[in-house]
Each structure stands twice: as C-alpha cells, then as structure tokens.
Nucleic acid binder design. Sequence first.
DNA 1: AGAATATATTCCTGTATGGGAATAGAGCCT
DNA 2: AGGCTCTATTCCCATACAGGAATATATTCT
Lengths: 110, 110
Amino acid sequence: MPKELTPEIISLAVERLRALADETRLRIMISLREAGEMSVNDLAANLQQNQPITSKHLSVLKQTGIVGSRKAGTQVFYFIKDDTVFEVCDLVCAGVRRHHQALSRSAGIL
Amino acid sequence: MPKELTPEIISLAVERLRALADETRLRIMISLREAGEMSVNDLAANLQQNQPITSKHLSVLKQTGIVGSRKAGTQVFYFIKDDTVFEVCDLVCAGVRRHHQALSRSAGIL
DNA sequence: AGAATATATTCCTGTATGGGAATAGAGCCT
DNA sequence: AGGCTCTATTCCCATACAGGAATATATTCT
C-alpha cells in the first residue's frame, strides 16, 4: 500500500477500480493490450457491441487516465496509457484462479 | 495477462474487481491489512459505519475469496485471504498518483 | 431457560449505471 | 456546399447496489 493513503487517493483508486470492474471495459483492455491501438469502430466490431456503447466505455476509461486517444482524420485511436493495469489484471486473474481451484477442490471433496 | 483468458475467468475477475471497487470495502481492506484480523464490530467502529452494513460488505469480500473468517465465540474475525489484493491496491494507487500528478502539471501550465 | 452480546439477513429507498435507439458533432471527399 | 464516414452525446429503461432500519440467528453467561 502506498505511503500516504489520503481520502482523495482512496476515492481515485475506487474510481479506477470501478472503471476496470466491467466486463465490456475489461474486454476493451484485453483487445487494446493485444492490438496496441484501435479505432472505436474496430473495437466495437471486436466486442460485437454497438459503437455508441463502445464509445461511452472508452470515455470512462479515458477519464480515469487508463487509456489515451489519438485522432487520425475522422477516426479516433485508443491505446493503453497506464501499463500498470496489465499487472492489475494479471494479479486479479491469478487470485481468481487460486480461489477457483480451491473451490473446485473442496467441491470435489464434498 | 494470464495464459487462458476464458469468459469464465473474465467474469470472475470482474466480480473480484467490483468487490474491491467500493470505498467502504477498500477501507475494510486497509484496516485488515494493518490489523491482521478484526471482528465485525471493531471494523464497523473503525469505519464509523453500522454493523449490518459492515457485515454485508464483508460477505461480499468473502464470497469472492478475498477475505476469510474465523469464529471465536460470538465474534467473527475477518482476515485477508489473498495477499495479491495488496499488490492490486498498490498498483492502482501508483497509477492514480501518476495520473493525478500529470493532471496537476497540465493544470499548472494552463 | 432467559438475558445479553455479536453477527447475519431482510425489506425498503434513492441513486448510479449499462445497454439500446436516435441524434448531434467532426472531419474528409467530390 | 453537400454528402459520407466515424465518433460522441442524449434520452430512456431496466437493473444493480449501497445505505438505513428493523429483525432474525447464534453464542455465551448467570
């Protein structure tokens, strides 16, 4: 845990966690991680989701500083701005796996 | 990112992120990290929150495997079960700080 | 058993939010 | 300018959820 855990930092951390705690947004992050950068339409197609919804989710991610954007003509390319979110995802997934396996074990025992 | 990112793992990761993405629950985690383990009432007092609310949040954290509990008489002591959440918090807070500082800098320039 | 304490659960309410549909805005092209 | 493509925004609806109050459950003690 960081040195100074002020209420403001806590609040911002919650905001960032909330931004990641959504399936569509997490899938956006996964796509961006793989592709480097993507336009809104490409992302929407990749997620099999509407363009407006994709755009809205991207704005949430951008607001918290997780992703950035680059304009190229009529398109807007989004990219991951803060690489630490990858480590966050890795850690969360690792924890999920452990918990999942523990549950499977106890279910097997029962 | 872990090797196999199945829909199930993604869904579980979202569930765990959601569990952390709440100010009260994050403060519970901070308290537990500092104290090792705490009873529900102690936590409620520490958070200056009702006992039922604290209990409800603890059940959310427990459901996702983030915390565990130990019964001692009429009391129930909760403790952190998955240490990776600390690293998650550290990473998120670090990212938040960077973003926050970047915003401060650009605000100073303007 | 009855009282007291500690925890969990239920019901209710207001708010926040994800998704859908329609629309507005921005930039390129002829 | 007009049309076209891409993106952002708005409105609406249904759902989820945090918080509060009251209550139920469990355990210890006399």
